[in-house]
Structure formats: structure tokens, C-alpha cells
């Protein structure tokens, strides 16, 4: 299902092959993901959101939050791991 292309193209690729059910499922999944993000502990959530919503670099995030860059990298990784754990748990 995942097409290995640049980000902007992915959206077009999926929307050009209309699959209403797939779209609903994807929407549902994204909603679940957002809920999971909302429930992350703040120290995980902030870097994650800054990276993937605000699209800041690790350095910028580190500057904003007053952390070291390495720490930011670890926090983002942990946030993702936590999300995986939560979502895997939910889909069981």
C-alpha cells in the first residue's frame, strides 16, 4: 500500500486511486493515532509534534525546549515506540 516516493506525491497517488473504504480506514487510523499522541506524556509529545507537525529540525527543537540534540532524538524515538505500543495494544 505504501508507495515509496516523495511526500507530496504520496497523497496524490492515494487520492488518484479512489478507494472509499480504504480512505475511511485510513482516516480512522489517523484519528486513533491522534488520540494516542494526545495521550502521550508531555515530554514525548512536544518533540514529536514539533518534528512532525511544525517540521522543525532536531537542533531547532533542542533550542526551543532547552534540551540537548541527542536527548531530543531519544525522546522522539521513545515517543514513536510508545505510540506503537499503544496502537498495537489497541488493535488487539
Amino acid at each position: 500500500m505504501i508507495v515509496e516516493v516523495e511526500e507530496g506525491v504520496v497523497v496524490e497517488a492515494t487520492s488518484s486511486e479512489p478507494s472509499p473504504l480504504g480512505a475511511v480506514i485510513r482516516m480512522e487510523e489517523r484519528a486513533q493515532l491522534r488520540v494516542a499522541i494526545a495521550h502521550l506524556p508531555e515530554n514525548y509529545r512536544l518533540p514529536l509534534v514539533l518534528r512532525y507537525y511544525s517540521e522543525l529540525s532536531y537542533d531547532e527543537i533542542a533550542q526551543q525546549l532547552g534540551l540537548r540534540r541527542n536527548h531530543v532524538a531519544v525522546l522522539i524515538l521513545r515517543a514513536k515506540q510508545e505510540l506503537r505500543r499503544k496502537l498495537a495494544h489497541r488493535s488487539k
Binding site: I2, E7, L33, R34, I37, Y53
Partner: peptide, 8 residues
């Protein structure tokens, strides 16, 4: 990463 970006 892509899914995260899209969702957010």
C-alpha cells in the same frame, strides 16, 4: 514519519 506528518 509520513503517517505521523499526515495525521498531525
Amino acid at each position: 514519519s509520513r503517517v505521523l506528518t499526515e495525521s498531525l
